[in-house]
Structures are given as C-alpha cells and as structure tokens.
Write a protein that binds this DNA or RNA. Sequence first.
DNA 1: TCATTAAATTGTT
DNA 2: AACAATTTAATGA
Length: 224
Amino acid sequence: MNLHASLQESAAWFELLDPDQQARVVRDTTIAVAEPGTIIEHRGGIGHAWIGVLSGLVKVSVSNIDGKTASLTGVPTGGWIGEGTLLKRETRKYDIVALRQSTIARLRGETFDWLLDNSVPFNRYLLHQLNERVGQFIGKAEYDRLFAPDARVARCLAELFNPLLYPSKSMRLEITQEEIGYLARISRQRTNQALRALEDAGMLKVEYGAVQVLDLDGLKEYDV
DNA sequence: TCATTAAATTGTT
DNA sequence: AACAATTTAATGA
C-alpha cells in the first residue's frame, strides 16, 4: 500500500489540497508502525512533526513521576494531533502512546507551516478541528465531575466517533473494554457493566474486542 | 478443513 | 485484584 492512498483514506484534509501540495506532503511524510504501549512522542520533546493515526488507536496522556498516568483523550484512525506544539513552537506537553498496534504518519513541521501559508482550505480544516477539540475538552471537564460511569463511557465513545475529528465510514471500532476504561478513567469491571447498560439501551452493540455504535446522538446525550 | 493449544479478552466475584 | 469462561489466532495433521 502506498502513502498517497493511505493519506487519501485517513486524512480528511489531504483531499483539500491541490496536486502539487499533495505531492509535497507525500514527500515529507514518514510512516512507522508502533507496537502497543509504545510512546510515539514524549512529553518535553520538541514537536518536529504533525502526527497522524493512519490505523490503530492512540491516546494522549500525562504521567507523573510515580508512574501514574492520566489519559486525556483517545485518538482513533483518521485523527491528527500535535498541531498545538507546532503552532506555538513549544515542547510537547503530553505523551502520545499507542494503545494497540498502530500505523503512525509524521508530517514534517516545515511542511505543516508551508501548508498554513499556502492553502486556505487547510487553514479552514484546522480551524474546524481546533474548535471541535475545544468543545470536546470543555465537555470532558464537565462530565468528569458530574456524570455516572455509564454516561462517562457513553461520552467517551461518542468522542471517538466524532465524525469531524475522526472521519470514518465505519461505526465499528476495535477497542477493548480495558482500553475504554483507561480513557473514561474507570475500572475495566465498571466499563463492562456500563457497556452492557448502553447495549440494553440500544445505543451500541458489544462485540469481542470491539464496539459497534448504533445511536451516536444517543450516546452524546446519554444521561442518567 | 478440522482439532488442538496458546493468548487475548470478557464476565464474575 | 483474582479467577473462570469465552473468543480468537496460530499451528500442524
């Protein structure tokens, strides 16, 4: 499989570029496979690239000295992250860790800047993405305190299926209940209960090592 | 293709 | 956290 096709598939912004720009992006993008648990980007490192998840699942997390980690958000196939450190020319504030085997693309920072300077559609895309992310984090701050575990799992899954941030035709995501637990910050056992409650409510279907979303809007507003 | 086994994931306490 | 049950993947006849 070639890079051009992969980007077409897993980078919503790629098709917004003209052929010359696409060619340059392909030239300045590298691909690597990350094994489960691998830290793709370290906190404190300098951001040289924009990180894209071409396949698999990644999380953004912080860990303190004790080794305790707090997962902030999950990023499934089609997600692109790390533009914050590129834009501000700062060191990374979070770790990016592979939850399962993932294919990771890195777009050179210089090329990212060049796209900002040369493509209006690219700017528009990025603006939408940033806006969407802000909304997501505000929502997270809210439900982190208020909601019961069932609702947290519901919102967490709804985030992963955000069609704007992570465009995908499929309503099915391969993710284990343990991984969902990490993202929602609840135990695996409680995740299991929550998932079945949501299944009973007709919002999703629980499969072995995966979930299939039936009612995305319902998940977004799930509240008990 | 089928049976066996190991590994991963889920269900339960 | 520990354990049992279930599903999947891998192996070899």
